[in-house]
């Protein structure tokens, strides 16, 4: 980390941006830096105070009272062939940040399949910091080539994450169905530890790398490889702040009806509890939306994978699950799920 003069102008490289959330003692998180260059645009509305309940379990370490939000935007509402965006985000200890988008990230047609647009986000999280990044999906139009990476670096493996990455088949209204040249999305979580000598050592905790291109020798169109789904996504959850959300996903996955199971009518219909009723309703909605999902508890993460026939199916699923569990809304406010509305 090089020293940054507080008087310096924002970086002048095109597409570069930087967000730093710092903690002003004793307990005031501030956006120390929000800088960006065309075609990237960042908008930071006023921070919101946490919804009333300040009496968290550990009163000695109250969670920060202000939650900052930054919208990640692009001029023209999308990414044009050849655009390169580099965003670095840094969360200091005990800070919280919500990252949002305003509508799906549209990827526009490229004149040459080899001209790949790129978007890289590097996030470093200090201990007890937390990031919620539940954006709108990426929507690559037909004949596009796009590659994005989201790299999260956790200091000493700590830090809390609830981040989603999802992609759609294109403009389905125009009949586009995965007619892309190439789409790549990489999500990586690393733990960075410094040894006695101060040298940084990093270890990979999670890599979720989606590669949609012509490779694979399947002799199949990309759309045929998708088994009729138009949306694929991954939700990555880690850390104490999100532990109840993580547990909720695991419990609900466990409670999914068995595939191929039959109702023999020998189990007496019991009166459903309100929770069971909500669950039954949601499962019905999932069935209607053609949504399938799985959750796995691996290496300190809960990793949720989902797919649906339409964008709305996945959006409903994420929104319903997060709202019903409720801890994200309590700890970050309604804004955190703005993109899921």
């Amino acid at each position: 980390m090089s020293y940054k003069s507080p008087f310096s102008t924002s970086s002048s490289k095109p597409g570069h941006g930087s967000i730093v959330v710092a903690l002003l003692p004793p307990n005031t998180p501030v956006l120390r830096e929000v800088s960006y260059q065309y075609p990237l645009k960042l908008v930071a509305p006023d921070p919101l105070a946490l919804p009333s309940d300040e009496k968290t379990e550990n009163a000695t370490d109250p969670s920060p009272s202000l939650i900052h939000t930054v919208f990640l935007l692009t001029y023209g509402g999308g990414i044009v062939a050849g655009d390169v965006i580099n965003l670095s985000v840094s969360l200091e200890s005990k800070t919280r940040l919500i990252l949002l988008t305003q509508g799906s990230t549209k990827i526009f047609k490229t004149p040459d399949p080899n001209l790949v647009s790129r978007q890289c986000m590097n996030v470093s999280l200090a201990a007890h910091s937390a990031l919620v990044y539940l954006p709108d999906p990426v929507q690559p139009f037909a004949h596009t080539a796009f590659s994005q990476s989201q790299i999260y670096k956790l200091n000493e493996g700590e830090g809390n994450l609830c981040v989603c990455d999802w992609v759609t088949s294109g403009r389905s209204a125009r009949g586009e169905n995965w007619d892309i040249h190439e789409y790549k999305s990489r999500n990586e979580v690393w733990t960075v530890t410094s040894d006695e000598k101060g040298a940084a050592k990093k270890r990979l905790l999670l890599r979720d790398n989606l590669l949609l291109d012509k490779n694979g020798h399947t002799n199949m169109q990309l759309s045929d490889r998708m088994d009729g789904f138009s949306v694929f996504g991954t939700l990555i959850i880690r850390g104490a702040v999100f532990s109840s959300l993580a547990q909720f996903f695991m419990d609900e996955f466990e409670a999914l009806p068995r595939i191929g199971g039959r109702d023999w009518g020998d189990s007496a219909q019991q009166k459903l509890s309100p929770q069971e009723e909500r669950r039954a309703k949601r499962q019905q909605q999932e069935k209607k939306d053609g949504l399938v999902w799985s959750a796995a508890n691996v290496r300190g993460f809960v990793l949720v994978k989902f797919a649906s026939k339409e964008v709305e199916g996945s959006r409903n699923f994420l929104k319903d699950m997060i709202k019903e569990e409720g801890s994200v809304l309590r700890n970050f406010g309604e804004r955190a799920v703005l993109c899921l509305k």
Binding site: K184, R186, R207, D208, N209, L210, L211, L212, D213, N215, G216, H217, R225, M226, D227, F229, F232, F253, L256, R258, I259, G260, G261, R262, V292, W293, S294, A295, A296, K305, F306, A307
Partner: peptide
């Protein structure tokens, strides 16, 4: 041939629905 020079960093899922099929194996009735 295709994967001969691919680095491990660039290993990844080319058939996303496969993760769901494999992941949901636990949910099979039998």
């Amino acid at each position: 041939e295709e994967g001969w020079d691919r680095n491990v960093e660039d290993a990844g899922q080319t058939v996303p629905v496969m993760d769901l099929w494999v992941g949901r194996h636990e949910k099979l009735y039998s």
